[in-house]
Design a protein around this nucleic acid. Structure first.
Length: 260
DNA sequence: ATGGTTGGAGCCCAA
């Protein structure tokens, strides 16, 4: 099973890139963030034409998450449990293989950016991650086979930052955010990329504004977290920079993991 | 260098 995650920064703009990437890479599951479109506009038919089922929760202009999958997804949840949140940032579903055997539960998140440590949006980011923590503790009790993917808007360590000095204490890299992520992972969710690349400094996001990609000035903020039982079955995990070099790219590039 | 670009909205906001 191959699962991938990609913040596309507008699915309307990036749909053909997504379909091309699906055709090339053939993941079983692709989780998307920042759709920036209401549900009525989600291109379910285009995905079906390319061999993929899809579930989505979106809104106009901002946010929005979806899971596309070669087999139909089951038990779809589009709200973070016990949260009152109009922002579309959470979608979860059960993945079954071709034999309709249940494989695992997939959670796809678009964690709030947070803007700056002294902003209202940072308070929202902390609260949102607190709610996610509670929900994932419950999910792990219900199903040991859990994969949580998405744009976390947190670089787990300095190894995930092109210039740690420049980013010290800044949004995405602060000690507070890293502690919250560490606490989430201490439930038993492991950074799958890091398991296979102990010291490589690859990134998943590069700022448009500074043309960061041309100098590889990036952050690794798009993560695939595997529960213990899923980590046992993980065989590889990597970041595919190819779409970041395509014309008119998203500022993020896909990350993927393969499981037995 | 405290900038810059991109996407979506609609005469700015979010990232």
């Amino acid at each position: 099973m191959k699962i991938a995650s990609w913040n596309v920064n507008s699915l309307r703009v990036r749909l053909n890139q997504v379909l091309d990437w699906l055709g090339n890479e053939q993941p079983d599951i692709l989780c998307l963030q920042e759709l920036k479109m209401p549900d009525a506009e989600f291109p379910h038919a285009a995905f079906l034409d390319n061999g993929y089922h899809s579930v989505a929760t979106g809104e106009k202009t901002y946010n929005g998450v979806a899971i596309v999958s070669k087999t139909p997804l089951q038990n779809v949840i589009t709200d973070l449990p016990s949260a009152e949140d109009s922002q579309r940032r959470f979608i979860a579903a059960d993945y079954h293989d071709d034999n309709n055997s249940e494989v695992c539960r997939i959670v796809n998140v678009y964690v709030p950016n947070g803007q700056a440590l002294d902003s209202e949006k940072f308070i929202y980011k902390r609260q949102w991650l607190g709610t996610l923590h509670t929900a994932m503790r419950e999910y792990l009790e219900q199903n040991a086979n859990l994969v949580v993917v998405g744009d976390f808007n947190i670089a787990p360590s300095d190894l995930d930052v092109h210039d740690p000095q420049r980013w010290r204490g800044k949004i995405h890299c602060s000690d507070g955010e890293r502690m919250i992520l560490q606490k989430l992972m201490s439930l038993g969710l492991y950074d799958t990329f890091r398991q296979f690349h102990l010291s490589s400094d690859k990134f998943s996001w590069w700022d448009y504004r500074t043309d960061g990609y041309s100098r590889n000035e990036g952050l690794r903020i798009d993560l695939i977290l595997s529960s213990s039982s899923m980590l046992d079955r993980a065989r590889s995990c990597d970041i595919d920079e190819t779409p970041r070099r395509w014309p008119r790219p998203s500022d993020h590039t896909p990350v993927w993991a393969v499981y037995d």
